[in-house]
Nucleic acid binder design. Structure first.
Length: 863
RNA sequence: GGGGACAUGGCGGAAUCGGUAGACGCGCCGGACUUAAAAUCCGUUGGAGCAAUCCGUGUGGGUUCGAGUCCCACUGUCCCUACCA
């Protein structure tokens, strides 16, 4: 019996697939139903890691399974190749970002190919290919023409380390998502995309995404943050400040609490605040102070509510006898609503904190159920629960919702404001002051202003002769001697190119559509995209729940409105897979130690660790995401070398549910490796022959039944993304096969085994494709197993004709009976009550009731 | 502060519909093979008990003939988000 040797076997089958070109897909399909499987494409950072292995192995299981089910499967691969790390490498090591990126792509392509993925490599592209980003420039200009792109001066998030602007989505806890540096506010002129025009569509579209995780839909909905309320204007009680004669506009979601207003607040950046500060050093100092405040969690938690009275007063819109002071307050945000609020301290915690600090009135107007109107008071906590409105004239006695509608109606009738929907979502700033990105195809002309580059002059190609020096940060496009100097396409005068490049999230917002035909002369080959889109199954990390997945949904809708694609939603099905984790180890000095240098010993239930060479004790730390800084990484290529690709693929699919983190362990992958060998032994020990069935042989029948049941289990587990359960069933079945060995078996059992192995080879093929091919060949299967159809279960064999029913007495299991499947309840009851074990437990008690659940269980109620 | 998820042996997890809790894997323990070890193979393995049996899915209640699963309250852990009026 030959030992299974993945080192020879795996490359052999990979070249067989390549030679037969089995994974190439036609651009407009071939008559079979289409299925588009896509994993989020990788950033070419240098080497693939275990997270990639898990992500792409999952997609490959789906792709191979759908292929076998008769679908024409599109399963492409590309590279999200623009971005900061390439520039960092350039500055640190003096290499060129382009060379660095394409070298990494070459290395990672080889690694991915070694994984044996069923990828159509003929469609591969990188976003840094001019052939790709040129098309991106083309549709960017179309969106500009549509009015979806605009330029404005705005206060933006500036990352002082990466020296670039970041979108709101890219600021995590007040820090740059990549650099981790605290973000500063800067006023810059930037290009923006009107994602807010699509806010409603993006929220409403979520309802159609029934194959997305609920969690991601909720995150997107919260991020867009639609809220309904009232926008209205306060008139000034005395003479209005110059330019503010119309009054002061505020936004609220609680118009029902209008009679509880005790002051009006404006943001420190509010134009009125800045105007007032002009001749007022104290206000000026206060506003400057506010600008400094950080946005990290600790800053916000600890931040004290601060404000300054402007001395201005405004008139209450619903009761002209009431006037309210106008304060500048540090907790009011300029870029939400109107940057001004009316404050109702009784029913808003922030307003209450502020009111207590500056001794402003607290007027409760919502009476909680069961409270007495005369005695109800607000202490340290604002009341935000339900109740009935009181001390509010015509709103008295109403519930909150009716009072909101009534207040809005009154204000609208007075023509002082109107109901308004406000979003948390801001327009997407896409300008990046970086070199290694897609150039924004705009020319700035001193007389014509910003002018689009004519379509026939695209692509605007990045110049390659740029210099990077660690002491000269910033964008080398700005200091390039010639590149930016050009002529205005409109007037022909001297002009300068835009030196900002596009946010790399633009690159990943349409690549899935380009894959339909990556060589198309137009941006998107409409016929091909109409055939393949939407992506039927998208797979990637949950860290993109808001960023990439929201941008891609927006761009797809914008491109649809432009007529470039027909779908509104790019990803019909989304699966967010968990990370690959590993224990982290530390030595006595507190330094991280690589897993390869650690020897673990276990005695009973306790584990201890020591250093493999020095023998010094090692502390076993937490299980964490694999990261270079904690040294708890395992290199995929080392695993492929030691155990083979199939064992590695199998392990990442087997140990945990795919949406959860999987803990990489050496012993775990060894288990998968053992499985591949034991599986091979079964195939290898099987003598050739036919499938002639002998129904009278019980062992043979039992084996056939479990093989046909297995088909259903594995099919369901793949369809339902429960790969770990499917793999467990395969293990279980192998155990059953070993219990009916070929050695000395009857002809009937041998035939049953042959049939079972034929089924098994196809069922394991999505998980361990190389081994499956070797097995298929040894069984004498026709052609390649990748081209073999998915096995079909014989319903007669897959269904049980006998059932073992547990018998409970008062809910406790007391015995079991074997009955024909589907046996009538009355019959089952008779048999159950005659069972000796049951009778023994019924002695001295009276049977009150017998519950029979067909084919499942019997419960006898007795006392 | 707001939103969401999760909690099952020594560990990862299974139980898809309210119906035999702990499949499968890892680890541990024992055995075979071996001069020995590794590898491999076989067996045991939730807890208590000699046993019958009893207890057992984070805690406390509830619904039900029957709850890991449904409802209420709580505790803990993790993720997202954040002065969004």
């Amino acid at each position: 019996m030959a030992r299974y040797n993945p080192k020879d076997t795996e490359p052999k089958w990979r070249s067989a697939w390549a030679q037969a070109d089995v994974f190439r897909t036609a651009d407009i399909g071939d008559g079979r139903p289409k299925y588009y499987v896509l994993e989020m494409f990788p950033y070419p950072s240098g080497r693939i890691h275990m997270g990639h292995v898990r992500n792409y192995a999952m997609g490959d299981v789906v792709a191979r399974y759908k292929r076998a089910q008769g679908f024409s499967v599109l399963h492409p691969m590309g590279w999200d190749a623009f971005g900061m790390p390439a520039e960092n490498a350039a500055m640190e090591r003096g290499v060129h970002p382009k060379g660095w990126t394409y070298d990494n792509i070459a290395a990672m392509r080889e690694q991915l190919k070694a994984l044996g993925l069923s990828i159509d490599w003929s469609r591969e592209f990188a976003t840094c290919d001019p052939a790709y980003y040129g098309k991106q420039q083309a549709w960017f200009l179309k969106l500009l023409q549509r009015g979806l792109v605009y330029r404005k001066e705005a206060s933006v998030n500036w990352d002082p380390v990466d020296m670039t602007v970041l979108a709101n989505e890219q600021v995590i806890d007040g820090k740059g998502w990549r650099s981790g540096a605290p973000v500063e506010k800067r006023k810059l002129t930037q290009w923006f995309l009107r994602i807010t025009d699509y806010a409603d569509a993006l929220i409403d579209g979520l309802k159609t995404l029934d194959r997305w995780p609920e969690k991601v839909r909720i995150m997107q909905e919260n991020w867009i943050g639609r809220s309904k309320g009232l926008r209205f204007t306060f008139k000034f009680a005395d003479e209005a400040p110059a330019g503010h004669e119309a009054g002061l506009e505020v936004y609220t979601t609680r118009p029902d609490t209008l009679f509880g207003a005790s002051f009006v607040g404006i943001a420190p950046e509010h134009p009125l605040a800045e105007q007032l500060a002009a001749g007022h050093p104290e206000l000026q100092a206060f506003i400057a102070e506010c600008r400094k405040g950080g946005t990290s969690e600790a800053d916000i938690e600890g931040a004290e509510k601060l404000g300054r009275d402007t001395g201005l007063r405004v008139v209450h819109p619903l009761d002209p006898t009431i006037t309210l002071p106008v304060w500048i307050a540090n907790f009011i945000l300029m870029d939400y609503g109107t940057g001004a609020i009316f404050a109702c301290p009784a029913h808003d915690q922030r307003d209450l904190d502020f009111a207590r600090k500056y001794d402003l009135p607290v007027l409760p107007v919502v009476l909680p159920p069961g409270e007495d109107a005369a005695s109800f008071e607000i202490g340290k906590e604002a009341y935000v629960g339900p109740g009935s409105i009181f001390k509010s004239k015509f709103l008295d006695g109403m519930d909150i919702e009716s009072a909101k509608s009534e207040a809005i109606a009154r204000i609208e009738a007075m023509d002082r404001g109107q109901g308004a929907t406000v979003y948390r979502l801001r327009d997407w700033g896409v300008s990046r002051q970086r070199y290694w990105g897609c150039p924004i195809p705009i020319i700035h002309c001193p007389s014509c202003g910003p002018v689009p580059v004519p379509q026939d002059q695209l692509p605007v190609v990045l110049p390659e002769d740029v210099t990077f020096e660690a002491d000269k940060p910033g964008n080398p496009l700005v200091r390039h001697p010639t590149w930016k100097h050009t002529t205005c396409p409109s007037c022909g005068g001297t002009a300068e190119r835009e030196t900002d490049t596009l946010d790399t999230f633009m690159d990943s917002s349409w690549y899935f559509a380009r894959f339909a035909n990556p060589d198309a002369a137009e941006c998107i080959d409409k016929a091909a995209a109409d055939h393949w889109m939407p992506v039927d199954q998208y797979i990637g990390g949950v860290e993109h729940a808001i960023l990439h997945l929201l941008y891609a949904r927006f761009i797809t809708r914008a491109l649809k409105d432009e007529g470039l694609v027909s779908v509104e939603e790019p990803f019909a099905g989304l699966f967010t897979q968990g990370m690959v984790t590993h224990e982290a180890y530390k030595n006595v000095a507190g330094e991280w130690v690589e897993p390869a240098d650690v020897v673990i010993t276990a005695e009973g239930n306790s584990r201890s660790a020591k250093h493999a060479t020095t023998g010094e004790p090692i502390t076993i730390g937490d299980i964490e995401k694999m990261s270079k800084s904690k040294k708890n990484v395992v290199a995929p290529e080392d695993i492929f070398e030691a155990y083979g690709v199939d064992a590695a693929r199998l392990f990442v699919m087997s140990d945990s549910p795919p949406e959860r983190d999987v803990q990489w362990t050496n012993s775990g992958v060894e288990g998968s490796w053992r499985f591949t060998h034991r599986l091979w032994n079964e195939f290898d020990s099987q003598p050739a022959g036919d499938f002639a069935h002998d129904a009278s042989d019980e062992a043979a029948l039992a084996l056939r039944k479990s093989a046909h049941k297995l088909i259903g289990f594995v099919t369901d587990s793949i369809e339902g993304f429960r790969f770990n359960s499917g793999v467990a069933r395969l293990y279980e079945f192998l155990n059953a096969l070993k219990a009916a060995p070929a050695d000395g078996a009857s002809d009937a059992v041998l035939a049953a085994r042959r049939e079972a192995l034929n089924i098994l080879a196809r069922l394991v093929s999505p998980f361990t494709p190389h081994l499956a091919e070797e097995a298929w060949a040894s069984l004498g299967g026709e052609g390649l197993v990748v081209d073999a159809p998915w096995p079909k279960a014989d319903p007669g064999l897959a269904a049980d004709d006998e059932r073992v029913l547990p018998i409970q007495i008062n809910g406790k299991r007391r015995g079991e009976i074997k009955v024909k499947a589907g046996l009538a309840e009355a019959e089952v009851e008779k048999i159950a009550l005659a069972d000796p074990a049951v009778l023994a437990h019924l002695e001295g008690v009276t049977v009150r009731k017998v519950i029979v659940v067909k084919d499942r269980i019997v419960n006898i109620v007795a006392n």
